[in-house]
Design a protein around this nucleic acid. Structure first.
Lengths: 207, 207
DNA sequence: TCACAAAAGTGACGAAACGTCAACTTGCGA
DNA sequence: TCGCAAGTTGACGTTTCGTCACTTTTGTGA
Protein backbone atom coordinates (compact mmCIF):
# COMPACT_ATOMS: atom_id res chain seq x y z
CA UNK A 1 0.00 0.00 0.00
CA UNK A 2 3.05 2.23 0.35
CA UNK A 3 4.17 2.89 -3.23
CA UNK A 4 1.07 4.16 -4.91
CA UNK A 5 0.17 4.55 -8.59
CA UNK A 6 2.61 7.43 -8.91
CA UNK A 7 5.60 5.31 -9.88
CA UNK A 8 5.45 6.50 -13.48
CA UNK A 9 9.23 6.70 -13.55
CA UNK A 10 11.11 4.27 -11.29
CA UNK A 11 14.26 6.15 -12.10
CA UNK A 12 17.54 5.68 -10.34
CA UNK A 13 20.87 7.27 -11.07
CA UNK A 14 21.88 4.28 -13.16
CA UNK A 15 18.97 4.68 -15.52
CA UNK A 16 19.38 8.40 -15.64
CA UNK A 17 23.00 8.45 -16.76
CA UNK A 18 22.27 5.73 -19.27
CA UNK A 19 19.63 7.89 -20.89
CA UNK A 20 21.84 10.97 -20.60
CA UNK A 21 24.84 9.24 -22.18
CA UNK A 22 22.80 7.93 -25.04
CA UNK A 23 21.37 11.37 -25.60
CA UNK A 24 24.82 12.98 -25.38
CA UNK A 25 26.08 10.65 -28.08
CA UNK A 26 23.12 11.42 -30.33
CA UNK A 27 23.50 15.17 -29.86
CA UNK A 28 27.23 14.99 -30.52
CA UNK A 29 26.62 12.86 -33.60
CA UNK A 30 24.16 15.37 -35.02
CA UNK A 31 26.73 18.09 -34.62
CA UNK A 32 29.53 16.02 -36.11
CA UNK A 33 27.45 14.91 -39.10
CA UNK A 34 26.50 18.54 -39.72
CA UNK A 35 30.08 19.74 -39.37
CA UNK A 36 32.12 17.06 -41.11
CA UNK A 37 29.49 15.31 -43.20
CA UNK A 38 28.27 11.79 -42.48
CA UNK A 39 30.79 9.88 -44.57
CA UNK A 40 33.81 11.69 -43.18
CA UNK A 41 32.69 11.40 -39.56
CA UNK A 42 34.20 8.69 -37.35
CA UNK A 43 33.06 7.08 -34.13
CA UNK A 44 35.98 8.82 -32.42
CA UNK A 45 34.84 12.21 -33.70
CA UNK A 46 31.45 11.59 -32.18
CA UNK A 47 32.69 10.39 -28.82
CA UNK A 48 35.10 13.32 -28.66
CA UNK A 49 32.03 15.55 -28.63
CA UNK A 50 31.00 14.01 -25.30
CA UNK A 51 32.92 13.49 -22.06
CA UNK A 52 32.78 9.73 -22.48
CA UNK A 53 35.55 7.29 -23.34
CA UNK A 54 35.76 5.57 -26.69
CA UNK A 55 34.87 2.18 -25.27
CA UNK A 56 31.65 3.53 -23.83
CA UNK A 57 30.35 4.31 -27.30
CA UNK A 58 30.05 0.60 -27.96
CA UNK A 59 27.89 0.10 -24.90
CA UNK A 60 25.26 2.16 -26.68
CA UNK A 61 25.71 1.66 -30.42
CA UNK A 62 27.40 -0.86 -32.65
CA UNK A 63 28.55 1.67 -35.23
CA UNK A 64 28.17 5.08 -36.79
CA UNK A 65 25.36 3.71 -38.96
CA UNK A 66 23.42 2.61 -35.92
CA UNK A 67 23.72 6.10 -34.48
CA UNK A 68 22.32 7.53 -37.67
CA UNK A 69 19.44 5.08 -37.64
CA UNK A 70 18.72 6.07 -34.06
CA UNK A 71 18.67 9.74 -35.04
CA UNK A 72 16.30 9.00 -37.91
CA UNK A 73 14.21 6.88 -35.62
CA UNK A 74 14.02 9.67 -33.04
CA UNK A 75 12.98 12.11 -35.72
CA UNK A 76 10.22 9.80 -36.86
CA UNK A 77 9.14 9.25 -33.25
CA UNK A 78 8.84 12.98 -32.70
CA UNK A 79 6.97 13.44 -35.94
CA UNK A 80 4.39 10.72 -35.49
CA UNK A 81 2.23 12.39 -32.82
CA UNK A 82 2.23 15.57 -34.89
CA UNK A 83 0.93 13.61 -37.83
CA UNK A 84 -1.64 11.89 -35.64
CA UNK A 85 -2.92 15.23 -34.36
CA UNK A 86 -3.25 16.51 -37.89
CA UNK A 87 -5.44 13.54 -38.65
CA UNK A 88 -7.62 13.90 -35.58
CA UNK A 89 -8.14 17.62 -35.93
CA UNK A 90 -8.80 17.62 -39.64
CA UNK A 91 -12.24 18.83 -40.77
CA UNK A 92 -11.93 17.24 -44.19
CA UNK A 93 -9.61 15.05 -46.19
CA UNK A 94 -8.19 18.09 -47.93
CA UNK A 95 -7.66 19.70 -44.57
CA UNK A 96 -5.87 16.60 -43.35
CA UNK A 97 -3.53 16.47 -46.31
CA UNK A 98 -2.71 20.13 -46.07
CA UNK A 99 -2.02 20.20 -42.37
CA UNK A 100 0.00 16.99 -42.57
CA UNK A 101 2.24 18.49 -45.22
CA UNK A 102 2.52 21.77 -43.37
CA UNK A 103 3.53 19.78 -40.30
CA UNK A 104 6.13 17.81 -42.21
CA UNK A 105 7.65 20.81 -43.95
CA UNK A 106 7.72 22.69 -40.69
CA UNK A 107 9.40 19.70 -39.10
CA UNK A 108 12.21 19.45 -41.65
CA UNK A 109 12.82 23.18 -41.55
CA UNK A 110 13.30 22.93 -37.80
CA UNK A 111 15.43 19.85 -38.17
CA UNK A 112 17.83 21.60 -40.51
CA UNK A 113 18.43 24.78 -38.57
CA UNK A 114 21.81 23.49 -37.39
CA UNK A 115 24.62 25.22 -39.28
CA UNK A 116 27.21 23.20 -41.15
CA UNK A 117 27.66 21.20 -44.30
CA UNK A 118 24.97 20.91 -46.97
CA UNK A 119 22.10 18.72 -45.93
CA UNK A 120 22.87 15.99 -48.47
CA UNK A 121 26.24 15.36 -46.84
CA UNK A 122 24.79 14.87 -43.40
CA UNK A 123 23.14 11.65 -44.44
CA UNK A 124 24.55 8.29 -45.46
CA UNK A 125 24.38 7.56 -49.16
CA UNK A 126 21.93 4.84 -48.50
CA UNK A 127 18.94 5.99 -46.53
CA UNK A 128 17.20 3.24 -44.68
CA UNK A 129 13.43 3.47 -44.66
CA UNK A 130 13.07 0.33 -42.61
CA UNK A 131 13.70 1.42 -39.04
CA UNK A 132 10.79 0.71 -36.70
CA UNK A 133 9.68 4.31 -36.27
CA UNK A 134 9.97 5.06 -39.97
CA UNK A 135 7.76 2.10 -40.70
CA UNK A 136 5.31 3.37 -38.12
CA UNK A 137 5.10 6.71 -39.91
CA UNK A 138 4.46 4.94 -43.16
CA UNK A 139 1.71 2.89 -41.50
CA UNK A 140 0.20 6.03 -40.04
CA UNK A 141 0.06 7.65 -43.47
CA UNK A 142 -1.32 4.57 -45.08
CA UNK A 143 -3.96 4.12 -42.40
CA UNK A 144 -5.15 7.68 -42.86
CA UNK A 145 -5.46 7.14 -46.57
CA UNK A 146 -7.30 3.87 -46.15
CA UNK A 147 -9.72 5.51 -43.73
CA UNK A 148 -10.35 8.31 -46.18
CA UNK A 149 -11.04 5.78 -48.90
CA UNK A 150 -13.35 3.78 -46.64
CA UNK A 151 -15.28 6.92 -45.68
CA UNK A 152 -15.70 7.87 -49.30
CA UNK A 153 -13.53 10.97 -48.95
CA UNK A 154 -11.12 9.59 -51.49
CA UNK A 155 -11.56 7.26 -54.44
CA UNK A 156 -10.64 3.58 -54.23
CA UNK A 157 -6.98 3.39 -55.06
CA UNK A 158 -3.96 1.29 -54.14
CA UNK A 159 -3.33 2.64 -50.65
CA UNK A 160 0.21 1.29 -50.54
CA UNK A 161 1.25 3.05 -53.72
CA UNK A 162 -0.58 6.16 -52.65
CA UNK A 163 1.16 6.28 -49.29
CA UNK A 164 4.49 5.79 -51.04
CA UNK A 165 3.64 8.56 -53.47
CA UNK A 166 2.76 10.91 -50.62
CA UNK A 167 6.02 10.16 -48.86
CA UNK A 168 8.07 10.52 -52.02
CA UNK A 169 6.44 13.83 -52.84
CA UNK A 170 6.88 15.08 -49.29
CA UNK A 171 10.57 14.18 -49.33
CA UNK A 172 11.47 15.62 -52.70
CA UNK A 173 9.33 18.73 -52.62
CA UNK A 174 10.44 19.23 -49.04
CA UNK A 175 14.09 19.13 -50.10
CA UNK A 176 13.36 21.53 -52.93
CA UNK A 177 11.69 23.88 -50.50
CA UNK A 178 14.72 23.80 -48.20
CA UNK A 179 16.90 24.82 -51.14
CA UNK A 180 14.82 27.97 -51.65
CA UNK A 181 14.88 30.91 -49.40
CA UNK A 182 12.85 31.96 -47.71
CA UNK A 183 11.32 28.57 -46.97
CA UNK A 184 7.72 29.01 -48.06
CA UNK A 185 6.03 26.19 -46.20
CA UNK A 186 2.50 27.17 -47.12
CA UNK A 187 3.20 27.47 -50.81
CA UNK A 188 4.81 24.03 -50.87
CA UNK A 189 1.97 22.52 -48.85
CA UNK A 190 -0.63 24.12 -51.14
CA UNK A 191 1.17 22.71 -54.15
CA UNK A 192 1.36 19.12 -52.96
CA UNK A 193 -2.13 19.14 -51.46
CA UNK A 194 -3.64 20.32 -54.72
CA UNK A 195 -1.59 17.82 -56.65
CA UNK A 196 -2.66 14.88 -54.55
CA UNK A 197 -6.26 15.86 -54.07
CA UNK A 198 -7.00 15.99 -57.77
CA UNK A 199 -4.45 13.31 -58.51
CA UNK A 200 -6.39 10.81 -56.48
CA UNK A 201 -9.22 11.02 -58.94
CA UNK A 202 -6.85 10.30 -61.76
CA UNK A 203 -5.24 7.40 -59.95
CA UNK A 204 -8.62 5.76 -59.55
CA UNK A 205 -9.33 5.56 -63.29
CA UNK A 206 -9.72 2.08 -64.61
CA UNK A 207 -9.54 2.66 -68.40
CA UNK B 1 46.39 5.72 -97.75
CA UNK B 2 46.45 2.79 -95.36
CA UNK B 3 44.47 3.90 -92.30
CA UNK B 4 41.36 5.53 -93.69
CA UNK B 5 38.65 7.66 -92.12
CA UNK B 6 37.75 4.85 -89.76
CA UNK B 7 39.75 6.20 -86.81
CA UNK B 8 36.59 7.15 -84.93
CA UNK B 9 38.36 6.05 -81.77
CA UNK B 10 42.04 6.94 -81.66
CA UNK B 11 42.41 4.32 -78.99
CA UNK B 12 45.72 2.98 -77.83
CA UNK B 13 46.36 0.23 -75.32
CA UNK B 14 46.85 2.85 -72.60
CA UNK B 15 43.38 4.28 -73.02
CA UNK B 16 41.85 0.87 -73.40
CA UNK B 17 43.14 -0.63 -70.16
CA UNK B 18 42.28 2.55 -68.34
CA UNK B 19 38.67 2.21 -69.40
CA UNK B 20 38.71 -1.52 -68.73
CA UNK B 21 40.16 -1.13 -65.23
CA UNK B 22 37.68 1.53 -64.28
CA UNK B 23 34.90 -0.66 -65.53
CA UNK B 24 36.29 -3.71 -63.70
CA UNK B 25 36.28 -1.75 -60.45
CA UNK B 26 32.71 -0.62 -60.98
CA UNK B 27 31.52 -4.12 -61.80
CA UNK B 28 33.31 -5.58 -58.79
CA UNK B 29 31.87 -2.85 -56.59
CA UNK B 30 28.35 -3.60 -57.73
CA UNK B 31 28.87 -7.23 -56.84
CA UNK B 32 30.43 -6.46 -53.48
CA UNK B 33 27.70 -3.99 -52.54
CA UNK B 34 25.12 -6.59 -53.45
CA UNK B 35 26.88 -9.33 -51.51
CA UNK B 36 28.07 -7.56 -48.36
CA UNK B 37 25.93 -4.43 -48.37
CA UNK B 38 27.31 -0.96 -49.00
CA UNK B 39 28.24 -0.09 -45.43
CA UNK B 40 30.12 -3.31 -44.73
CA UNK B 41 32.05 -3.24 -47.99
CA UNK B 42 35.66 -2.03 -47.97
CA UNK B 43 37.90 -0.73 -50.72
CA UNK B 44 39.93 -3.91 -50.34
CA UNK B 45 36.86 -6.07 -50.87
CA UNK B 46 36.21 -4.25 -54.11
CA UNK B 47 39.75 -4.45 -55.43
CA UNK B 48 39.90 -8.13 -54.51
CA UNK B 49 37.11 -8.64 -57.03
CA UNK B 50 39.46 -7.50 -59.78
CA UNK B 51 42.99 -8.55 -60.70
CA UNK B 52 44.37 -5.18 -59.74
CA UNK B 53 46.53 -4.18 -56.79
CA UNK B 54 45.19 -2.13 -53.92
CA UNK B 55 47.21 0.93 -54.85
CA UNK B 56 45.70 0.97 -58.32
CA UNK B 57 42.25 1.58 -56.90
CA UNK B 58 43.33 5.06 -55.88
CA UNK B 59 44.39 5.87 -59.43
CA UNK B 60 40.72 5.66 -60.33
CA UNK B 61 38.69 6.64 -57.27
CA UNK B 62 39.33 8.50 -54.06
CA UNK B 63 37.12 6.29 -51.93
CA UNK B 64 34.27 3.81 -51.74
CA UNK B 65 31.82 6.70 -51.81
CA UNK B 66 33.24 7.96 -55.07
CA UNK B 67 32.74 4.53 -56.58
CA UNK B 68 29.16 4.63 -55.41
CA UNK B 69 28.64 8.03 -56.98
CA UNK B 70 30.17 6.79 -60.21
CA UNK B 71 27.74 3.87 -60.27
CA UNK B 72 24.82 6.21 -59.66
CA UNK B 73 26.14 8.53 -62.31
CA UNK B 74 26.48 5.69 -64.81
CA UNK B 75 22.93 4.60 -64.08
CA UNK B 76 21.67 8.09 -64.74
CA UNK B 77 23.74 8.34 -67.90
CA UNK B 78 22.21 5.13 -69.23
CA UNK B 79 18.74 6.25 -68.29
CA UNK B 80 18.84 9.71 -69.83
CA UNK B 81 18.62 8.74 -73.52
CA UNK B 82 15.77 6.39 -72.66
CA UNK B 83 13.93 9.29 -71.10
CA UNK B 84 14.72 11.51 -74.05
CA UNK B 85 13.33 8.97 -76.48
CA UNK B 86 10.17 8.70 -74.44
CA UNK B 87 9.75 12.43 -74.81
CA UNK B 88 10.41 12.51 -78.53
CA UNK B 89 8.16 9.60 -79.37
CA UNK B 90 5.25 10.64 -77.17
CA UNK B 91 1.98 11.41 -78.95
CA UNK B 92 0.57 13.33 -76.00
CA UNK B 93 1.54 14.53 -72.57
CA UNK B 94 -0.21 11.60 -70.98
CA UNK B 95 1.63 9.30 -73.33
CA UNK B 96 4.92 10.92 -72.35
CA UNK B 97 4.31 10.55 -68.67
CA UNK B 98 3.27 6.95 -68.99
CA UNK B 99 6.13 5.83 -71.17
CA UNK B 100 8.63 7.70 -69.04
CA UNK B 101 7.44 5.90 -65.93
CA UNK B 102 7.35 2.57 -67.71
CA UNK B 103 10.91 3.21 -68.81
CA UNK B 104 12.03 4.08 -65.30
CA UNK B 105 10.33 1.15 -63.64
CA UNK B 106 11.70 -1.17 -66.28
CA UNK B 107 15.13 0.31 -65.67
CA UNK B 108 15.13 -0.26 -61.93
CA UNK B 109 13.80 -3.79 -62.32
CA UNK B 110 16.72 -4.56 -64.62
CA UNK B 111 19.12 -2.84 -62.28
CA UNK B 112 18.10 -5.03 -59.38
CA UNK B 113 18.30 -8.43 -61.01
CA UNK B 114 21.65 -9.16 -59.32
CA UNK B 115 21.24 -11.65 -56.47
CA UNK B 116 22.39 -10.78 -52.99
CA UNK B 117 21.42 -8.67 -50.04
CA UNK B 118 18.12 -6.82 -49.84
CA UNK B 119 17.93 -3.94 -52.24
CA UNK B 120 17.89 -1.31 -49.51
CA UNK B 121 21.33 -2.36 -48.37
CA UNK B 122 23.07 -1.97 -51.71
CA UNK B 123 21.23 0.56 -53.80
CA UNK B 124 24.02 1.52 -56.15
CA UNK B 125 21.36 2.99 -58.43
CA UNK B 126 19.78 5.26 -55.87
CA UNK B 127 18.70 8.62 -57.16
CA UNK B 128 21.13 11.00 -55.52
CA UNK B 129 20.27 14.40 -56.81
CA UNK B 130 23.74 15.89 -56.59
CA UNK B 131 25.84 14.00 -59.13
CA UNK B 132 26.25 15.64 -62.56
CA UNK B 133 24.28 13.03 -64.45
CA UNK B 134 21.49 12.99 -61.90
CA UNK B 135 21.17 16.72 -62.22
CA UNK B 136 20.93 16.24 -65.96
CA UNK B 137 18.07 13.78 -65.50
CA UNK B 138 16.32 16.26 -63.26
CA UNK B 139 16.81 18.97 -65.89
CA UNK B 140 15.47 16.64 -68.56
CA UNK B 141 12.33 15.98 -66.52
CA UNK B 142 11.88 19.60 -65.71
CA UNK B 143 12.36 20.69 -69.30
CA UNK B 144 9.73 18.23 -70.48
CA UNK B 145 7.29 19.56 -67.95
CA UNK B 146 8.01 23.17 -68.85
CA UNK B 147 7.50 22.38 -72.51
CA UNK B 148 4.20 20.73 -71.74
CA UNK B 149 3.13 23.78 -69.78
CA UNK B 150 4.23 26.12 -72.56
CA UNK B 151 2.32 24.09 -75.15
CA UNK B 152 -0.80 24.17 -73.05
CA UNK B 153 -0.72 20.42 -72.45
CA UNK B 154 -0.41 21.00 -68.74
CA UNK B 155 -1.57 23.81 -66.48
CA UNK B 156 0.80 26.52 -65.29
CA UNK B 157 2.44 25.15 -62.18
CA UNK B 158 5.76 25.42 -60.40
CA UNK B 159 7.87 23.26 -62.70
CA UNK B 160 10.61 22.77 -60.13
CA UNK B 161 8.25 21.40 -57.51
CA UNK B 162 6.48 19.34 -60.13
CA UNK B 163 9.70 17.77 -61.36
CA UNK B 164 10.66 16.99 -57.78
CA UNK B 165 7.25 15.47 -57.17
CA UNK B 166 7.58 13.28 -60.26
CA UNK B 167 11.00 12.07 -59.16
CA UNK B 168 9.87 11.46 -55.60
CA UNK B 169 6.87 9.51 -56.77
CA UNK B 170 8.94 7.52 -59.22
CA UNK B 171 11.44 6.59 -56.52
CA UNK B 172 9.00 5.60 -53.81
CA UNK B 173 6.39 3.89 -55.94
CA UNK B 174 9.24 2.23 -57.82
CA UNK B 175 10.66 0.83 -54.59
CA UNK B 176 7.22 -0.36 -53.55
CA UNK B 177 6.81 -2.10 -56.88
CA UNK B 178 10.15 -3.87 -56.44
CA UNK B 179 8.95 -5.19 -53.09
CA UNK B 180 5.96 -6.85 -54.74
CA UNK B 181 6.16 -9.86 -56.90
CA UNK B 182 5.64 -10.14 -59.69
CA UNK B 183 6.81 -6.66 -60.56
CA UNK B 184 3.81 -5.16 -62.32
CA UNK B 185 5.40 -2.31 -64.20
CA UNK B 186 2.30 -1.33 -66.14
CA UNK B 187 0.06 -1.18 -63.09
CA UNK B 188 2.52 1.04 -61.29
CA UNK B 189 2.95 3.27 -64.34
CA UNK B 190 -0.81 3.55 -64.79
CA UNK B 191 -1.15 4.52 -61.16
CA UNK B 192 1.39 7.31 -61.17
CA UNK B 193 0.40 8.60 -64.60
CA UNK B 194 -3.20 8.92 -63.53
CA UNK B 195 -2.17 10.51 -60.27
CA UNK B 196 -0.03 13.15 -61.90
CA UNK B 197 -2.22 13.88 -64.87
CA UNK B 198 -5.21 14.81 -62.75
CA UNK B 199 -2.99 16.10 -59.99
CA UNK B 200 -1.61 18.77 -62.24
CA UNK B 201 -4.99 20.37 -62.44
CA UNK B 202 -5.20 20.45 -58.68
CA UNK B 203 -1.72 21.86 -58.30
CA UNK B 204 -2.63 24.76 -60.56
CA UNK B 205 -5.52 25.95 -58.37
CA UNK B 206 -5.06 29.42 -56.97
CA UNK B 207 -7.77 29.54 -54.31
C1' DT C 1 64.26 -1.68 -84.30
C1' DC C 2 65.85 0.23 -80.19
C1' DA C 3 66.32 3.48 -76.47
C1' DC C 4 64.17 6.22 -73.44
C1' DA C 5 60.64 9.00 -71.08
C1' DA C 6 56.11 9.12 -69.42
C1' DA C 7 52.31 6.66 -67.64
C1' DA C 8 50.38 3.21 -65.00
C1' DG C 9 50.62 -0.77 -61.73
C1' DT C 10 52.36 -2.87 -57.46
C1' DG C 11 52.42 -4.09 -52.66
C1' DA C 12 54.78 -3.04 -48.42
C1' DC C 13 54.46 0.35 -44.93
C1' DG C 14 53.10 3.96 -41.56
C1' DA C 15 48.89 6.15 -40.05
C1' DA C 16 44.27 6.06 -38.64
C1' DA C 17 40.18 4.00 -37.08
C1' DC C 18 38.15 0.06 -35.26
C1' DG C 19 36.35 -2.95 -31.58
C1' DT C 20 37.65 -5.50 -27.30
C1' DC C 21 38.73 -6.34 -22.61
C1' DA C 22 40.92 -6.46 -18.05
C1' DA C 23 41.09 -3.22 -14.58
C1' DC C 24 38.70 0.24 -12.32
C1' DT C 25 34.73 3.21 -10.59
C1' DT C 26 30.04 3.85 -9.25
C1' DG C 27 25.34 2.87 -7.76
C1' DC C 28 22.24 -0.02 -5.28
C1' DG C 29 20.39 -3.39 -2.15
C1' DA C 30 21.24 -5.83 2.04
C1' DT D 1 28.85 -0.02 5.84
C1' DC D 2 29.75 -3.77 2.71
C1' DG D 3 29.80 -6.43 -1.48
C1' DC D 4 28.36 -7.20 -5.91
C1' DA D 5 26.60 -6.02 -10.32
C1' DA D 6 26.48 -2.53 -13.78
C1' DG D 7 28.90 0.65 -16.25
C1' DT D 8 33.19 3.22 -17.63
C1' DT D 9 37.80 3.60 -19.09
C1' DG D 10 41.71 3.81 -22.28
C1' DA D 11 45.38 0.95 -23.81
C1' DC D 12 46.05 -2.61 -27.07
C1' DG D 13 45.84 -5.81 -30.98
C1' DT D 14 43.47 -5.80 -35.42
C1' DT D 15 41.72 -4.08 -39.66
C1' DT D 16 41.50 -0.76 -43.19
C1' DC D 17 43.29 3.21 -45.17
C1' DG D 18 46.04 5.90 -48.41
C1' DT D 19 50.81 6.72 -49.97
C1' DC D 20 55.04 6.12 -52.32
C1' DA D 21 59.40 4.21 -53.96
C1' DC D 22 60.02 0.90 -57.17
C1' DT D 23 58.81 -1.97 -61.26
C1' DT D 24 56.46 -2.82 -65.54
C1' DT D 25 54.21 -1.27 -69.65
C1' DT D 26 53.35 1.78 -73.44
C1' DG D 27 54.10 5.34 -76.83
C1' DT D 28 57.48 7.94 -79.49
C1' DG D 29 61.07 9.41 -82.40
C1' DA D 30 65.72 8.64 -83.85
Amino acid sequence: MSQTTSNVEPIGKREKTKVANRQAILVAARGVFAELGYEAATVRDIIRGTDLASGTFYNYFKSKEEVFDALADDGARRFRPILRMARENARSFEDYLHSAFVAYFHFIVQDNLLEGRPIEERRPHILRMDTPEMTAVYQEVRQSLEDAIAHGDAPRVDADYLACACIGIAQEVGSAMLRRSPHDIDAAADFVTGLLLKGLIGAARKD
